[in-house]
Nucleic acid binder design. Structure first.
Length: 544
RNA sequence: GCGCCACUAGCUCAGCUGGAUAGAGCAACGGACUUCUAAUCCGUAGGUCGGGGGUUCGAAUCCCUCGUGGCGUACCA
């Protein structure tokens, strides 16, 4: 809002200088200086365009800044030009106050973007239904869900989707492993094969199977597979639900790809485009023609399709559903699949390949007492989400998992998260929210509806208003860069500024008008905090 | 070998679509509770942005190169 207003003012002043180059509003960048003495906002316009305008940056900045302050004195307190050619803006206090009041009156929707009329599909987690979700899936889940929420809030029509790999070798192995567990319970001493599933959870599944399927026989593979898959999928949903994640779509590979003839359709399409060839009895795709270093097998010499063929068919299905953008959130261990898939789609339709976007999630390690406990010693399996939930609050888990850039490795330190103090940023933010709530409750008899103007001039209050104004840009930044961690950092900043303000300023005091205005300020902060936390899937308790 | 990601304060990390004196939290040190929640605040200290080159008015940011670590590199999924 405010940045756009500034851009327009710069542009109108620039235009009246009649230079040889025409500037567009997109050419103007507004940044926020780190140093307070540089003002509230700044632009590098004069350095950026000095050469094309054929003026020394400082001369240009001097001319333009003088013109701006002359034209728009009602908006700016001050417009400075400084070396090496920045123009710094100090916005009038009344402008900031007007912003605050406007935001307060729209606080329920503040920060949300205009409707974009674009559909986005965000696919994430998509763990095989052959076991419980573990640490490796957790960061993916948190990032995917937060991102979906942020993009939706920013104005996109977003659908979240979980792709269920319920077809192929893994499921076959699952069924066989279950069979052995059932036989074990019945007294047969058999061992699960090396590529089977050794986790103890299958013992539970086996017991359930025995109880639910009276007179069962173990010769029907499908029955065993389906039972195990359905059981584990239900457990996965349960765990996701625990951390506040609910998918819009659950997409079954078996039902929506294999049973629908989508594999053949994909092959037919690829064949028509001359992207296939046979070698050594297998069917290959010419991905190397469209950016990959290698070609890949789609149908093995034993005539079974590879996973990659299903993946292509799946993405063709996504595309056919009319999404403008298709975002895949994948573990970094799958990064080699990115080129493979985009090359395939590029071969089919280059424009479609542009719709594919990827967020790669680097590994998380779980630390306790400085030691890596990602892998449970007892079972040799990764720590499950369920195990983690028994140790750490779900809000802390959700927040911590999006508190770092996705493409950096992340050590999740349990010791810090178990403390209810400074080291735990989630409590810090929630505490700010709770503190505000406490004041609002105490002052609930005060009517704020009759306030028509606010006038705050304390430096802390003004910088809080600016911080609130930032929220809109943080959402934009997070959405455009697919980076929920930017929001996480912002919320910590805002909470910090509030705590500091709280310490030095009495909100409820004898001066009723002043109290009202301060209440408007903190109530807006509370609203931003809880909106922001909500976008990260974190709750905002009213009391702590 | 090749590819992807990372390397910034003691630790964990922001900043990377080039901008002003490189930031935050924790840890360390020193302060603040007759106060709307001290789960808080204020202050001090802490840096060769992995090394080296280049690009330009300007590089943590872009390019090249080397090093270190993680992850990939299937007719598995």
């Amino acid at each position: 809002m405010i940045k756009n207003i500034i851009k327009k003012k710069i542009l109108s002043s620039y235009n009246s200088l009649s230079k040889n180059i025409e500037l567009k509003i997109e050419d103007i960048d507004i940044s926020q200086p780190k140093q307070i003495l540089h003002g509230d906002y700044a632009t590098n316009l004069c350095m950026k365009f000095s050469s094309s305008i054929k003026l020394n940056p400082m001369t240009f900045a001097e001319e333009l800044s003088k013109k701006i302050i002359n034209d728009h004195g009602e908006f700016f307190n001050n417009v400075d030009f400084v070396k090496p050619g920045f123009i710094n803006f100090k916005v009038k206090e009344s402008v900031l106050n007007d912003c605050l009041l406007k935001i307060y009156k729209n606080k329920n929707i503040y920060g949300s973007g205009d409707k974009k009329k674009k559909k986005i599909l965000v696919e994430f987690v998509s763990a095989n239904p052959t076991g419980l979700l573990h640490l490796g899936h957790l960061r993916n889940a948190a990032v995917g869900d937060s991102l979906s929420r942020i993009l939706r809030f920013y104005g996109y029509d977003v659908q979240s989707e979980y792709y269920i790999n319920d077809f192929g070798n893994q499921i076959k192995n699952l069924g066989e492993s279950l069979k052995i567990r059932i036989k074990n319970i019945n007294g047969e001493s058999l061992k699960i094969s090396e590529d089977g599933y050794h986790g103890e959870y299958l013992i539970d599944v086996a017991n359930q199977f025995i109880n639910n399927k009276k007179n069962y026989k173990l010769d029907d593979e499908d029955v065993l597979q389906d039972f195990a898959k359905d059981y584990l999928l239900a457990e996965i949903k349960k765990d996701l639900n625990q951390i506040n994640i609910n998918f819009d779509n659950w997409f079954s590979e078996k039902d929506c790809i294999h049973s629908n003839g989508n594999l053949d359709k994909a092959l037919e399409l690829l064949r028509k485009l001359d992207l296939l060839y046979e070698k050594d009895g297998a069917l290959w795709i010419k991905t190397s023609q469209h950016g990959d270093v290698d070609d890949w097998v789609l149908v093995k010499s034993d005539k079974n399709p590879t996973y990659f063929l299903s993946d292509i068919a799946y993405h063709l299905d996504k595309i056919s559903r009319g999404f403008d953008r298709i975002i895949n959130i994948w573990g970094a261990d799958h990064h080699s699949h990115v080129t493979r898939l985009t090359s395939s789609i590029k071969g089919i339709n280059d424009e479609d390949s542009l719709k594919l976007e990827f967020v790669m999630i680097q590994f998380v390690r779980l630390l306790k007492n400085g030691l890596d406990i990602s892998m449970s010693k007892r079972s040799g399996q990764y720590t499950t989400i369920r195990d983690l939930l028994s140790l750490v609050d779900k809000d802390v888990i959700r927040f911590m998992m999006v508190s770092r850039s996705s493409d950096t490795h992340f050590d999740f330190d349990l010791d810090n998260c178990l403390k209810d103090s400074d080291e735990n940023p989630v409590f810090y933010i929630q505490y700010a929210n709770a503190r505000i709530n406490s004041i609002l409750k105490k002052g609930c008899s005060i009517d704020l509806n009759d306030i028509e103007t606010v006038f705050l001039e304390d430096i802390k209050e003004l910088s809080l208003i600016k911080k609130i104004i930032d929220f809109e840009y943080v959402i934009e930044d997070s959405a455009k860069n697919l980076s929920p961690h930017k929001l996480a950092f912002y919320l910590q900043d805002l909470a910090k500024d509030f705590h500091s303000y709280y310490k030095t300023t009495k909100i409820l005091n004898n001066e009723i008008n002043e109290t009202k205005i301060k209440l408007i300020l903190i109530s807006t902060i509370k609203s931003v905090l809880s909106t922001g936390l909500g976008l990260l899937g974190v709750s905002s308790p009213e009391e702590m």
